[in-house]
Design a protein around this nucleic acid. Structure first.
Lengths: 221, 221
DNA sequence: CGCCAATAACCCCTAAAGAGGTACCTCGCA
DNA sequence: TGCGAGGTACCTCTTTAGGGGTTATTGGCG
C-alpha cells in the first residue's frame, strides 16, 4: 500500500486518550512511508507541549478526552502558535462538534469508524494541505453551512439605535410585538419594523435568537 | 389633623438617602399622635441593623439608594426576619419596580410625590395591616397582575420529560419547530405538541420566554 | 439649502406559532 | 389485565412573526 513519495515524510503527532487507538494508528502509519508518526500522548496538555517541541506537520487530535476536551486543546494549540495541520479525530457525528472544530481552526474532521485505507487516503490529502471531512458527514456539513450566519459571529449592540435596543429589551423579556407596542405607546407595525431592522443588523434569524443573544449579552435589565 | 387613637402609636423607621426627605417625613409624623418616627438613616445597611434593634412596626424604605438598592434592602430585612410592615417609598412608577417590591415582600408602594395628607392616610392604613399602593399606580398594578404568571415563579426543569428537554434545548438554540423536527427526525406537528406541553408545564407564554428561561437556567449546551 | 439617519405608520403577503382536539402505540406498574 | 404516561401524528383555527415595499416627519450636518 505504501506509495513512495520523493520528499521527506509528513510528521504526525497523535493526541488521543485511547492507547489502543494510538497503537492502531501507529501501525497503520508504519505501512506508509510518506506518513510518519513522531509522537503520541493521551494527555491534552502534554500534547500541546509536544506540539511545540516536535513541531509536527500534522496533529491528529481526539475530540473527546477527559479534562481538557478536544476543542479546548485545539484552541490551546492555535494559541501556542502551532501552524501545522490539525485534524480532529472523533466518534462524534454531531453538527455542533463539527462546527466547533472547524470554527476553532481544525483542518479536518475524521470519524474513528472509518476504514484504515480511507483514513490513510484522507491523512495524505490533509498533509498536502487539503481540508478533509469524513464522507458520511458531508450532509451535516452542508446543513451546518446552511444554518450558518454569513456575517459577524459577534454582532454588536452598538450598531443598534436607542429605540432598537429598547425594543430588544422588551422582546427579550418575552413580550409580543403587540405588548411591546402597548408598552412603548407605538403601533405594532412600528414595533415590527424595529424588530426587522434589529434582526438584520445583528444578523439573527428570529426573535428567539435575538432574545437569547440579548440575555447572554446582558442587555436585559 | 392629629387623630387620637387609644393604643400606643405605630413606630416607624425610615431608610432613605435624602436627608431633607427624612426630615420632611419626620415633621409630618410629628403632627400625628398615632404614628411615631423612632429612627431614620440614609444607609441601607445601617437600616437593617436599626430594624433589628428598634423593631419598629413599620419601615419606610426608599427604593433608589446608592450601594444596596431598595429591593436588596427589602430582601435583607426579610432575611433578617423583620416581621413588621415594609412600605416602599419611591419616585419610580415603573412596573418592574412595583412588581419587584411586592414580590420581594413589601406591604406597600408609595410615590414620593404624593400629598402629605394622602401620605399620612396611607401610612395609617399600612400600620393597620392593609396593603397600600399609590392611587396613581392602580392601572400599573392591574397591568402587572395581568402580565403575571399565575403559578410558580421558579418552574422546574425536572417536571419536563426527556423529550421535552431536548426540544427546549433546540428551541433555545433558536431553531424553528420545522428545523427541530428535521433535526430530531419527527414531524413538525409533534414538535409543536412538545413545545405546547413544555410551555404549559413551565407556565410560560411563548417560545421566547422558554428560550430565555432555558438560557438563564443553563439548559442549553 | 439638500441629504441622511432615525422614528413612526401603513400596505400586502407568507410563514410560523400556538391552542384545542382525537388517535394510536408502547411500557411499566398496580 | 387494565390504566396512565410518554411519544408520535394529524386535524382545525387564530394569532403572531417577519419580509417586502412606500410615505412622512424630525433633527442634525455638510
Amino acid at each position: 500500500m505504501a506509495q513512495s513519495r520523493h520528499e521527506t515524510p509528513a510528521s504526525i503527532l497523535i493526541i488521543d486518550d485511547h492507547p489502543l487507538l494510538r497503537r492502531g494508528v501507529a501501525q497503520l502509519l508504519e505501512l506508509e512511508d510518506d506518513l510518519e508518526l513522531v509522537g503520541d500522548t493521551g494527555e491534552p496538555a502534554e500534547g500541546v507541549r509536544l506540539a511545540g517541541e516536535l513541531d509536527p506537520d500534522m496533529i491528529l487530535l481526539d475530540l473527546n478526552m477527559p479534562g481538557m476536551d478536544g476543542i479546548q486543546t485545539l484552541k490551546a494549540l492555535r494559541e501556542a502558535d502551532f501552524a501545522g495541520r490539525i485534524v480532529m479525530f472523533t466518534v462524534s457525528d454531531h453538527e455542533e462538534d463539527l462546527v466547533a472544530a472547524l470554527r476553532g481552526g481544525a483542518d479536518g474532521y475524521l470519524l474513528k469508524d472509518m476504514e484504515p485505507e480511507e483514513m490513510v487516503r484522507q491523512l495524505r490529502q490533509a498533509a498536502l494541505g487539503r481540508m478533509v471531512v469524513s464522507e458520511s458527514l458531508t450532509a451535516l456539513l452542508a446543513e451546518a453551512l446552511r444554518n450558518q450566519r454569513t456575517a459577524p459571529a459577534t454582532p454588536d449592540i452598538h450598531s443598534l439605535t436607542q429605540r432598537e435596543r429598547e425594543i430588544l429589551r422588551e422582546l427579550a423579556a418575552g413580550l409580543s410585538n403587540k405588548l411591546i407596542a402597548r408598552k412603548l405607546d407605538i403601533t405594532e407595525g412600528t414595533v415590527k419594523v424595529h424588530v426587522k431592522h434589529l434582526l438584520k443588523k445583528l444578523n439573527l434569524r428570529s426573535r428567539v435568537e435575538a432574545a437569547v443573544w440579548a440575555v447572554q449579552e446582558g442587555i436585559d435589565r
